[in-house]
Design a protein around this nucleic acid. Structure first.
Lengths: 186, 186
DNA sequence: GTCTATAGGACGATAGAC
DNA sequence: GTCTATCGTCCTATAGAC
């Protein structure tokens, strides 16, 4: 299952890597090819243009999101708990795809923007169904977006030691659970 | 007071404009000069390099944030109400500066990243003092970041008609106020 | 399937006229 | 204080060898 990745996958990984660590401006074909360990010509055999490279990344994001939706629905600790805790960047393949897509969405890449919006819609539907109240679901979505913004887009914005981080994550989940329970007093 | 803006200011406005609407990649010296209505040479008289242009934008952001902190502290409706409601992009000069700086922070512009972090710290201090509980203050910060993320970085992510928007903003403020009050039962 | 070489344009920055 | 002209570099993409 976990084979040595194909050249195509290595190129996509390299593209994500550079987008995440150095931003869209640095993600040139030269830089991606070098990071993937192929020549520029080799890269362009797999992805015929830079646009095709963006499409490849967006497509991969879609697949990872579909799998994630299943994980959220079936999480033992419950939808809200899992969803909030998974909203910080853990360098998982999904996190990496999301952050890379966000970098592209900051430029004018409509496909990346739409993929992220569609991801948000999927998440909102699951959370909304789980908590009942759409307004509370929206507040939860915003906290999740805030967590992503801080851990992924503004690295080390609210940096904490790792035990402080789990502690404050527990606090946050408790605060949100109190919100959910007060909105469904039955 | 509101004079015709100097060429320097027009260049900075143009730089912000392009960053916001088309992203970092499109914000070239040529494009900024054209948008500001000057030649590239004229632009480079005011800002000797592209780095100096970034510095100019970061500096302007700092000034606008300082003024905003005063507004938050003295808001008649209270710190939390004002802070949350001002977390959506209204195209104000401050909003525009923040969004432009965020675009730059996605690349590797340490100065833009630091300016945004320092802005967050200032906000957190004010909110934390107002609500008493740091954990609740953090949750409020995250909602605010989420609102910015949606209205500024993923335009029209949760698009709504304008009366639906004020209505759901009222809902959101109520939800957050209930959080604040349940944490200070005195 | 991957390489080298190169075309053709865009980029940041400098020089010098006005 | 603002312009035009230009240099050297970097970028995307193509052509053709292996």
């Amino acid at each position: 299952m976990t084979q040595a990745p194909s050249a195509r996958d290595r190129v996509l990984d390299a593209f994500e890597n550079i987008l995440i660590t150095h931003g869209e401006r640095s993600a040139t074909l030269d830089a991606v090819a070098a990071e993937a360990g192929v020549s520029k010509g080799g890269l362009l055999y797999h992805f015929g243009s830079k646009d095709a490279l963006v499409d490849g990344l967006v497509e991969r994001l879609g697949e990872l999101v579909s799998a994630d939706i299943v994980n959220i629905r079936t999480a033992p600790a419950g939808v809200v708990d899992y969803f909030i805790r998974s909203s910080v960047n853990t360098e998982s393949p999904l996190d990496r795809s999301i952050i890379a897509a966000t970098r592209l969405a900051q430029g004018s890449h409509p496909r990346a923007q739409e993929a992220l919006k569609s991801m948000q819609r999927s998440w909102f539907d699951v959370v909304s169904e789980a908590v009942g109240d759409p307004a509370v679901a929206r507040a939860i979505m915003l906290v999740s977006d805030g967590l992503y913004y801080n851990s992924a887009l503004l690295p080390s914005a609210l940096a904490e030691t790792s035990d402080r981080a789990t502690e404050s994550m527990d606090d946050l989940v408790n605060i949100i659970q109190s919100l959910v329970h007060s909105s469904q007093p039955n």
